[in-house]
Amino acid sequence: MAFIDCHFFSETLGVSASMHVILPQPTTTQIGLESRVVKAKHPTLFLLHGLSDDHTIWMRRTSIERYAAAYGIAVVMPAVNRSFYTDMAAGYKYWTFISEELPALARSFFPLSHEREDTFVAGLSMGGYGAFKLALSCPEQFAAAASLSGAVDVVELSKQRDPVEFGRVFGDLDQVQGSRMDLFQLAKDVAQEEGIKQPKLYQCCGTEDFLYADNLRFRDHCRDLKLDLTYEEEPGSHEWGYWDHKIQAVLEWLPIR
């Protein structure tokens, strides 16, 4: 695999932005790494960080490069600060950045596939929210999405966390439920929309995680809507040992062609 520490200017944000990228490389002599290339334009996983992290965290806390090598998949890991992947009420337009500008720029810089069937998104905690938000808002762009210990219920979470910070992100918190920032509403919209390809969804959460109850509610909501959801749970908390383990399950689950 090739590893790129990429810094670029974002027209959307009006500031310099960063992402880590790993790209498949065919090798036969590299010790300890099984690597292959699926096609010239690589299938791509956009891998999102959590609230207290940045674009470096997946490389620092997991063996994502080694895991991805066996699948011939590129991995793009952008930085979005504490934005919840949202056009912030008092801040930057990170939703426009992550849903429009970043994929276009990444594909212009690197040999990444433009096809929906080759495009996936995953993330942990805040990034799990971002992954499902992307796939459910843009089902024409993403074939599959995975949430690891995701902050899937931002309405409930905003009641437990700093309302001032959440207000800077989402605006009037009384208006979040039922909006395009509410995953429960987005799931309902996708389930009811005719003539679209619904993304495959993968959701996991440790049973000792503080977000476990929220994840159960979202799981049941998706099942009631009959969305294509794979759900897994096991003992675990909100920590990197769990996520290093589960990102391997995500890669195995992805419908890589």
Rank of each mutant, 00 (worst) to 15 (best):
A151C: 15
Q30H: 11
V76D: 03
L105M: 13
L134D: 01
R168W: 07
A145V: 12
T28E: 15
G127D: 01
A69M: 05
S147V: 10
K41M: 09
G50D: 02
W58P: 00
P139K: 10
I73Y: 07
R61M: 13
I73G: 02
S113L: 10
V152H: 10
R168F: 10
A135P: 00
F166Q: 00
G91M: 05
Y67R: 11
S83H: 11
V37P: 00
P139L: 07
A69N: 09
V154S: 04
T96F: 01
P26V: 08
H55A: 09
L45T: 00
S113Y: 09
S83P: 05
A131Y: 08
V80W: 02
T86K: 07
K39E: 03
W95V: 01
D87V: 02
M59L: 15
E140D: 15
L157D: 01
F84A: 06
E100D: 15
R61H: 13
E34C: 07
T27Y: 11
E165R: 13
A145M: 05
S147I: 09
K133Q: 08
S137Y: 11
L105W: 03
S52Q: 13
D53K: 04
V152M: 09
F109D: 00
E115M: 09
Y67K: 14
S158I: 07
S113K: 10
D153A: 12
S158F: 08
M77W: 10
S113F: 07
V155E: 03
L48A: 04
G150P: 01
T27M: 12
R116C: 04
P26I: 04
F46R: 07
Q141N: 14
G150K: 01
K93E: 08
N81H: 12
E100I: 02
Y67V: 08
I98G: 03
E34H: 13
G91C: 06
L48S: 01
G50Y: 04
R61W: 03
R36A: 02
M88I: 02
A131C: 10
F84E: 03
A143K: 05
A151G: 14
T28R: 13
A131I: 12
Y71E: 08
I98Y: 02
F132D: 00
I31V: 14
P163W: 11
T96Q: 14
